[in-house]
Design a protein around this nucleic acid. Structure first.
Lengths: 405, 405
DNA sequence: AGCATTTTGTTCTGCGCACAAACATATTAG
DNA sequence: CTAATATGTTTGTGCGCAGAACAAAATGCT
């Protein structure tokens, strides 16, 4: 027997019931931002006294703090506001073809800092990790002074195995089998997790964005790195057998279409692409806002036709998605959001007429509004999800900094 | 205050922890058929003594019985087998365009009885309910002697709201907004639930069929009533906002395809149809086995070409499904299963070359083997799921019959 | 201004449930 | 026939939640 045998029955596994209830309350507060204790008792169905104990424990853990009530004055003793403690925070990293963005997100989903580090060329995995590590190590002392960092989340445009944080294949970055989570974890000393960017975008939209409170949401993001998809089905992120589910960018939309880099033909991602719009608009490699302005003003016949063509293919994907997922909301981000904003009725009309009426239901199409903050929030959720699943497990982490609020 | 005010704090809501554990064990036994008590402790992680108490309670409830061990002899005191009590059973009803099938399924998923009642023409909802009710009432005394019926499950080829048991739209049956669950419940006195047939088929396959033990499964059934789809994602049936998710029969597979009854064009269901195969094979309205024989023997060039064409479109649907769901298994039922069986490598090759390599993973395509038993099992699961979620709630039901095993 | 009403926080007690330990039992190995 | 092993059974302990009684802090009515 090794000397480490027979650990004392640590408090690391308290009654599952308590862990569950702690997680429930912590998650509610994280998602809603403010919630009175009375509201917590109503939403959880737990007893007043129990909620009191649980909130007290979360306060002691530094996940939550109580403050004077801010809500409407009502008859009866006022119930204190419970808010997520912003000094508990996570780091977010999002490598793209032309930049690596690093952010600091506090519990409750507020982006406190965001640094976009532009790169000359497409970064390799090693380069992206080095950039992120350098930025993080650089602000480490500042972080330690004001925050307790619970981990790092990586949002990668590609197929990612969430379980081990390995990027199996990111075609637009040219990465294959890169253990980015481990690499960044070792470089910084923080626990690190990774997942597909669009999946994380879907989660962020579900919690803080257009889909707030809904259980069924389809998120599609169009960017320089093609089209990524993420799906929330019945309240949970769709993962699939190995975590590669939700690749709606490779939905079949056209018979005898172009050959996609994935090997098939007629994929959404090949028929609908940002670069073609940039070319036709006479823009070199500008950003999204320039594209939107160009599309709105000088609508050459050729450009208008291309927009219509792309909207048609996007409509086919949405029709499939509606029939497949019966969602409450569809959220379009990036240039797909721009296309939709140009004529909001087009796509809506397509799903009304082309999808099954019942499946379309009252589903609406939204344009994502959080921009690049969304990726930061989604990536940070990776770390927060782990934290919120077992709030008492936080004791292993460094002590929280002195409170300055 | 009415006299009924203030019910005694009934045992109907015991500690959620206990309900949960009871449900866990009952479900394990139902799914596996036989499980030693020792295995139950291992799988649940619960304490020996706890499992003992729980199994005892389930025995008292009549959901389970213990018997002499049947497994391999091993060192140590033998652990008794725990088996689902087959005298606890559910009724299953599956209306189709040419028949109504009624079945009796016992806990553990064994189909004890099955009656197919052929109809001259497509039954209306009222007719289907009347047929089912007549059959059920007819065998009522026989049932009461040997079984405790926990409810009825309806598997309907169409869009069904599982929550209230209303068939929103079953195009092939010509039903709209038919509250079939309520109708059959009132006609028989049994609690009654309804859902889409393919969704229930997917559940049945997951539990007892080719997908046993997997968490991600795509099920496609081709029959006289078109093509239905059901998806198990991350261990749970995909429902969507109103329960209409999984309609893979309306996946887009062809540009400028035929107009579907759903209003769109190029749907899988219009391009791939059983009746076209029957026509080309020179069969009037035979059954599936005749079709399979015909396809295997006299393969006219025309028929072969049609088979190839349909396989191509089916392949597109599977490619989309793989990219969307990253499943462990794809299960094809009905004539889709026949098409696949004719040349098993065709579809497999299509998803290997056309879908994303990573998403395809080690996914395999299976042909469903349970035939019409599958629908009975799936429908019965509707009643069993409710039962298993709160085994102690069974006390409201009639007492179990005297045991004859 | 004061009192009733309402709502919620707080404290204390009891109960149910799961676990662990000690003991009993039934099998295989030698 | 004995040792070893695995499992069922019994008993005691502790934890966490619910509920009741009480305290506190607001509104609203007179």
């Amino acid at each position: 027997m090794s000397s480490a045998t027979r650990l004392p029955a640590t408090a690391s596994d308290p009654d599952p019931s308590r862990r569950n209830n702690l997680a429930l309350i912590a998650t509610l507060v994280h998602h809603h931002g403010v919630l009175s204790r009375a509201e917590l008792t109503r939403r959880t169905g737990l007893n007043r006294s129990t909620v009191g104990t649980l909130v007290g424990q979360l306060v002691a853990l530094g996940l939550v703090y109580e403050a004077a009530p801010s809500g409407e004055a009502q008859v009866g003793r006022p119930s204190p506001d419970v808010r997520p403690d912003p000094s508990t925070a996570a780091l977010a990293v999002n490598p793209e073809v032309d930049a690596v963005t690093i952010g600091l997100v506090s519990l409750g989903g507020k982006v406190q800092k965001k640094i976009r580090f532009a790169t000359e060329r497409i970064p390799t995995a090693k380069e992206a990790v080095n950039i992120a590590a350098a930025v993080i190590v650089g602000m480490r002392s500042e972080l330690d002074a004001s925050y307790r960092i619970v981990g790092i989340g990586l949002a990668v445009p590609g197929l990612v195995n969430r379980a081990d944080g390995v990027v199996r294949h990111a075609p637009h970055l040219g990465w294959r089998d890169e253990p980015v989570a481990r690499m960044l974890g070792e470089a910084t000393g923080y626990p690190c997790l990774a997942d597909n960017d669009a999946s994380l975008g879907a989660e962020a939209e579900l919690i803080f964005g257009a889909g707030a409170g809904r259980g069924n949401l389809v998120y599609l993001n169009g960017g320089a790195s093609g089209i990524g998809g993420g799906v929330i089905a019945d309240g949970a992120l769709l993962r699939g057998s190995a975590g590669y589910a939700g690749e709606l960018g490779h939905t079949f939309v056209r018979t005898a279409g172009q050959i996609c880099h994935c090997g098939a033909s007629g994929c959404l991602e090949t028929e609908v692409s940002q670069s073609r719009l940039f070319d036709l608009a006479g823009l070199g490699g500008g950003d999204a806002s320039q594209l939107e302005a160009a599309l709105r003003s000088k609508a050459s016949a050729e450009l208008a036709a291309e927009v219509a063509r792309q909207l048609g293919y996007l409509g086919i994907t949405l029709r499939n998605a509606v029939n497949t997922f019966n969602p409450d909301a569809i959220v379009l981000d990036g240039f797909l959001g721009i296309l939709h904003a140009l004529s909001p009725d087009t796509l809506d009309g397509l799903i009304r007429t082309q999808a099954l009426d019942e499946a379309a239901g009252r589903a609406r199409i939204y344009r994502a509004a959080l921009g690049s903050d969304l990726m930061m929030i989604g990536a940070a959720e990776l770390a927060f999800t782990r934290l919120l699943a077992d709030p008492a497990g936080i004791t292993a982490l460094p002590a929280p900094p002195a409170k300055v609020r």
